[in-house]
Design a protein around this nucleic acid. Structure first.
Lengths: 233, 233
DNA sequence: GTCTATAGAGGGATAGAC
DNA sequence: GTCTATCCCTCTATAGAC
């Protein structure tokens, strides 16, 4: 267990993760983090160099293992099925489960981190751009190609859109979000096992759906691309 | 047009919206906002009372019309179909279109605001809680009940989960997100008309999907609810 | 590796002239 | 309604003792 190796570092990381998720990154000061972690203020700069260094470390600790699992899972599928297409269900599972495992593992940060993840990219943009360009994009592409093989009736760019929908639904669904509570259901947002069980058929059906007709048989009357709104609009 | 009535207020709102979406709320200072709006620093406090007041106004300006449309649309459906169930396609359209109209309307803030919205609740939690408890929850509930009628094979709590997935997919899909760019597709994230055309069948198929079996015929081995992680974990 | 003390920058808000 | 000047606060980061 890494947790044992350097208690101070881990304490800072866990406190930071929790506070970031609860109140946002920018509004969380190093003073509050070190206070909660019961560690000296200067320790952050000693161990992580700066607040930015700490932010990177918070993300790295959780997302590193996930991308590793993603890669391992897709490779296992590729090896198992060879040239023949793997079924969509299994591909979706291979993608969702690593994230779900993270979400359900309270010891490893669990849903706290998922909330941080769902919170968006604007606060940690530089980290996400680094991550995407290095590994994420490549992994996602292999999932997309695997899906294509079992979905010959779905055009390539429709599949791109659907992948984006998938990412949105998955992140929202596994973050144990505030949203669910407000839909007034008996559903327990903390039940990750249940969330996955619901999520998989929803996503599979969405991916399998008949693609929309090419023709403009039906227009929603939404401007496609309008002029630059300008400085003030 | 409200835009004409008070130029200064509108300039501040638009500048704030843009900067909030680009770099987050907390990191955007009133100095940067007023600088971009070419308005005096003190104007914010004069017109909005405080930075919090400004944040509320930014959300209110966009979300007010959306919730109004949501309500009008669901009422139109209820009146048109009476006791017999409205088809899922129309219900989903009635829900997605108001948001899509906002996203596609550059003059009204468009995708800039959608990005702000997708960014999550943590930065503007107090505003969302106010909104949810007053109108949003009630409106969402009527959509849920309409869906139930046309989806008798879907249990009530499964539907709750699916609504959450729907919200995640919609928000992500209409935010013109950075994500799509990275999936290496020819899809243009700015094409809202296209986004909606893709989104509707995806969501409808997901909502219509056969619900997962109740029994534990298949477990993902994810802990359901574990102990409180404690202060530090 | 841990702590105290502080430098140095930037933030929100306001008083008061115009 | 708009502007300048300024108060007072909190923040990150670091220097230097232990």
């Amino acid at each position: 267990m890494k947790t044992v190796l350097n208690p101070t570092k881990e304490r800072i990381l866990s406190a930071a993760e929790l506070l970031f998720a609860e109140t946002g990154i920018a509004t969380t000061s190093l003073r509050r983090i070190t206070g909660r972690a019961r560690v000296n203020l200067a320790a952050v700069n000693y161990h992580f160099g700066s607040k930015d260094g700490l932010i990177d470390a918070v993300y790295e600790r959780r997302l590193g293992p996930v991308t590793d699992e993603w890669l391992a899972n897709i490779e296992a599928l590729e090896n198992r099925y060879g040239e023949s297409p793997a079924p969509v269900e299994e591909i979706v599972e291979a993608f969702v489960l690593p994230v779900a495992r993270l979400a359900s593992d309270e010891v490893r940060g669990g849903r706290i981190f998922m909330r941080l993840l769902a919170q968006g990219y604007s606060e940690a943009r530089h980290y996400f751009e680094k991550l995407f360009s290095s590994q994420y994009q490549h992994v996602l592409d292999r999932y997309r190609q695997a899906l294509r093989q079992d979905l010959p009736h779905v055009p390539s760019d429709t599949l791109c859109w659907r992948l984006q929908f998938l990412l949105g639904a998955m992140t929202q669904g596994l973050s144990g979000g505030e949203l669910l509570r407000l839909i007034e259901g008996k559903a327990d947002p903390k039940d990750t096992e249940r969330a996955v069980r619901e999520l998989i058929p929803f996503l599979v059906a969405g991916l399998r759906a008949e693609p929309p007709p090419e023709s403009e048989e039906r227009s929603y009357g939404l401007s496609t691309v309008s002029a630059d709104p300008g400085e003030i609009a």
